[in-house]
Design a binder for these strands. Structure first.
Length: 834
RNA sequence: GCCCCCGUAGCCCAAUGGCAGAGGCAGAAGACUUAAAAUCUUUCCAGUGUGGGUUCGAGUCCCACCGGGGGUACCA
């Protein structure tokens, strides 16, 4: 008898029984299936960044998807028509590497992992619409990737050019920027990344640089500051001027960009990037001795690794190329140098060097003993006074008024910049200009497991877009195909696939051997969820008009730049083509923090906590609510600092409340204990704003608080039969379902209702029960707490001051001093200033 | 170097400019138990990184610094 009771107690949170039980019910009821055409309810589009199917879910997924799910379930409860879909970002190199390593088909590896993750998500009680799943590696999906490519090509936004790319010498393939670590090594192989010049496909993101930058203002307050800042830096707009320098023996002037056109009078030499076409051209017409020196320097620069090259402390190197530019104002002869501190693909690949006012130019001038001309005052930081600079004060960056600069003399830095642009514009040798750090998006990859590029190459080099009715261009079978990296795309080896004919002329042509960057796949997937099975179009423009933008996006900060920037770019491009009515895809964004183990990031190498083990030990509900309770969602936390066991204990306590309720469903709550009723309604009043401001940890604390109060009412108050106990239990159950759906379903059933609790609306708080009759007022003297008073809420300022003044403690304190003035904030506070 | 975020109890975290504590973890005591676990009850613990400022009043706003985390860096 006793032991049976004990067993029951331990089973109050019996996840091993409840999980399979409710999974069956959910499978039948499909509570989260959405009808997009239902306009009777307002829409909410809640989206989690779709996962890459490398193995099973891990702690990071568990955290992020818990947050997304809480938000989605909340909007279901508020009666919204909620689109909360899931898919897989299932093209990519890990599948290909697994294929090479273990000799399995990348498709098999990928889809087996997807099946496993899908089951794990379902078990994790995610409120997805399971009837609208997509995988980017399905031909039904990547057909529309190819369609998108062709649309961009039509618009001139997809083009080919030869450029320097990251090359992994071990994997023998190009790498995406994000696969190159800060130290210049490959994330995957650890090899030092090389640069290779290859002809590749690019998307013209730079055309949208200004809009991508300016529209960030609209996201202020709704995206994390950090992400907005990172995007601003990435786009890196600099404002200044283009200045033309006439080069002796060349018809066309050389244009340089400068943010400091006010210092043009101080330009003493010019530098071109050694890899630039400009350098090659200038050198081709110089004396042989310079040609040789330059050739040597170019080889040396190219042999350098990224690590060496990026070292800012490195001594400046360069060669004089034997040619001269003429200063646009003074006409002085300025020697032209080639140096690797000037980058070929930024600005115009050439600079005017002003050593007096630029660190890099100064270092270079020092190394090669070039003249330094000061053209702005030096202001001593200590004294704030203008004085003659010592040698060690150079270069002078935070300059005072312009000097030695003709019409600019006496102007402050800002005014001098404006004036310089005016002067240059008048002379026709310069103009205001902007330049960007942002580069065009390299989308070609020498990989097999990706979207084939729908372009045919004619024998004469002609580019022939594949007609739309020939899409999808599917990948060939891996049968007989060597995927081992050899520096060329594996598709090139599929002879039958690569060789085809021009659909218009029947002439032999070759397909493009490269596949697209998988960031192309993810740059528009949020549009495909409207109907992943539509085989007539990528997405329906009318449905998109109703359902875009995504109201809430949830995912990791590791995508702060690339994925989010590309998605914003594609959205704007589709807007310009008239297919979207919005220019920003994601209205609100939250980045989950990291789940750490002993202060360290978890990874496959360092181990850490295994999600499956934790789920086995504590159950889905306890893990989900632990994630929610751990702190603000954007903060990282240590798994050791939180307590899944404590969560399990809490869930058992909540369950016990439901079990203790003895009143029947539909009982009249109005006769219930007023203290508990008020607590319940205050709780119901607080929850919406807490969830909507992502304070999930506080929400859980409120749940715990209400459980504690209800427990007290049952054990030492009006007892389990009190209708207020049922009211509290029902409110608890409904709100708990956001965090711990299995336990909530079980409680809802115990309370005498049919499933599913997920679709029961959040009860409205009764305003009558939110009214507080009396309140504790604070009495301060000089801002220090001296007494507290119990006063009616409706008390007037005069009354409150009077009561406060006549409180014994205050009276005594005020006797000895003179009151200078009194601050009254009825009904909460009185402050006597003496 | 530059940019962003964070410093509240032993620990994780709350606190519309108005009583520093909602909640949890860990600890202590007690109840139940032959005992333990589980459960329940009670309880201990800081003046908010440092120094200024604004204010009747600052954890909260402003400035400087210290400490920690993240991003980025030869971008003209």
């Amino acid at each position: 008898m006793k032991s049976a009771e004990n067993t029951n107690e331990r089973n109050d949170y019996d996840f091993q029984t409840t999980q399979p039980k409710w999974q069956k019910v959910w499978e039948e009821l499909k509570p989260f299936k959405v009808d997009l055409s239902d306009s009777s309810k307002p829409k909410k589009y809640v989206l989690d960044m779709f996962p890459y199917p490398s193995g099973d879910l891990h702690m990071g997924h568990a955290e992020a998807f818990a947050f997304g799910d809480i938000i989605a379930r909340y909007w279901f409860q508020r009666g919204y028509n909620v689109l909360h879909p899931i898919g897989w970002d299932s093209f990519g190199l890990p599948a290909e590497n697994a294929a090479i390593k273990r000799g399995v088909d990348p498709k098999k590896w990928t889809y087996e992992n997807i099946a496993q993750q899908r089951q794990s998500f379902f078990n994790y009680a995610c409120s997805f619409d399971w009837d609208r799943v997509l995988h980017t590696s399905d031909p039904e999906y990547y057909k529309w990737n190819q369609w998108l490519f062709l649309k961009l090509y039509e618009q001139g936004l997809a083009y080919r050019k030869a450029s320097w790319v990251n090359w992994d010498p071990v994997d023998q393939t190009v790498l995406a920027n994000e696969q190159v670590l800060a130290d210049g090594t490959s994330e995957r192989t650890g090899a030092v990344v090389e640069k290779r010049k290859l002809t590749q496909w690019y998307f013209k993101v730079t055309d949208y640089a200004d809009r991508l930058l300016n529209d960030l203002d609209k996201l202020e307050g709704r995206w994390p500051n950090k992400v907005i800042a990172m995007q601003r830096n990435w786009i890196g707009r600099s404002e200044g001027a283009d200045i033309d320098f006439v080069v002796e023996g060349r018809d066309e002037p050389v244009t340089v960009f400068s943010t400091r056109p006010d210092t043009v009078w101080g330009a003493t030499f010019m530098v071109v990037a050694p890899e630039s076409e400009l350098a090659a051209e200038l050198v081709s017409e110089t004396a042989d001795e310079y040609k040789e020196a330059f050739a040597e320097y170019l080889v040396a620069a190219q042999r350098m690794t990224e690590i060496e090259r990026q070292d800012a402390n490195r001594k400046k190197t360069g060669v004089f190329i034997g040619r001269y530019a003429l200063h646009p104002i003074s006409g002085a002869k300025l020697p032209i140098w080639a140096a690797d501190y000037v980058l070929a693909d930024y600005g115009h690949g050439a600079i005017m060097a002003v050593p007096a006012h630029d660190q890099r130019d100064y270092d270079f001038a020092e190394t090669f003993d070039l003249p330094v001309i000061q053209v702005a005052e030096f202001v001593d930081k200590e004294t704030g006074e203008v004085r003659e600079p010592e040698l060690t004060d150079f270069p002078i960056i935070d300059t005072g008024k312009a000097i030695n600069s003709g019409p600019l003399d006496g102007l402050s830095k800002q005014d001098a910049i404006q004036k310089a642009i005016e002067v240059l514009t008048e002379r026709g040798t310069g103009r205001a200009s902007k330049t960007y750090r942002l580069r065009d998006w390299l989308i070609s990859r020498q990989r097999f497991w990706g979207t084939p590029i729908p372009i045919l190459h004619g024998e004469d080099g002609e580019l022939i877009p594949l007609p739309e009715d020939q899409l999808p261009l599917t990948l060939p079978s891996t049968e007989g195909l060597d995927l081992t990296p050899k520096g060329k795309s594996p598709l090139g080896g599929a002879a039958e696939w690569i060789n085809t004919t021009d659909p218009r002329t029947g002439k032999p042509v070759k397909r493009d051997p490269d596949t697209m960057d998988t960031f192309v796949d993810s740059s528009w997937y949020f549009l495909r969820f409207f109907d992943p099975n539509d085989d007539t179009k990528a997405f329906d423009t009318e449905i998109a008009a109703n359902w875009m933008p995504v109201d809430q996006y949830v995912g990791g900060v590791e995508h702060a730049i690339l994925h989010l920037l590309y998605s914003r770019f594609i959205t704007k491009a589709l807007y310009d083509m008239g297919m979207l009515k919005v220019q920003e895809p994601f209205t609100s964004l939250i980045n989950q923090g990291m789940v750490l183990s002993n202060g360290a990031k978890m990874s496959k190498r360092s181990g850490g906590v295994n999600l499956a083990d934790e789920l086995d030990k504590y159950g889905v509900d306890a893990i989900r609510i632990t994630m929610a309770f751990a702190g603000p969602p954007e903060d990282s936390f240590n798994w050791e600092d939180v307590s899944p066991a404590g969560s399990a204990k809490f869930l058992a306590r909540a369950m016990r409340i439901a079990k203790d309720v003895t009143s029947e469903p539909g009982v009249d709550f109005s006769k219930g204990d007023e203290t508990l009723r008020k607590a319940t309604h205050k709780f119901l009043d607080q929850i919406p704003s807490l969830i909507e401001s992502f304070k999930f940890n506080v929400s859980v604390a409120k749940l715990m608080e209400l459980v504690n109060i209800t427990r007290k009412t049952i054990d030492s108050g009006s007892g389990a039969a009190d209708p207020a106990v049922r009211e509290a239990a029902e409110a608890l159950t409904i709100v708990l379902s956001l965090f711990s759906p299995y336990t909530a379903e079980e409680m809802w059933e115990i309370l005498g209702y049919e499933p599913t609790v997920a679709l029961v609306g959040l009860p409205e708080a009764d305003p009558a029960l939110l009214v507080v009759e009396s309140i504790t007022a604070v009495v301060q003297v000089n801002g220090k707490l001296r007494a507290t008073l119990e006063v009616p809420v409706g008390i007037s300022a005069a009354e409150l001051e009077d009561v406060a003044r006549n409180t014994a403690e205050i009276k005594r304190l005020l006797e000895t001093s003179e009151i200078r003035h009194v601050v009254v904030r009825e009904p909460k506070l009185v402050n006597f200033v003496v």
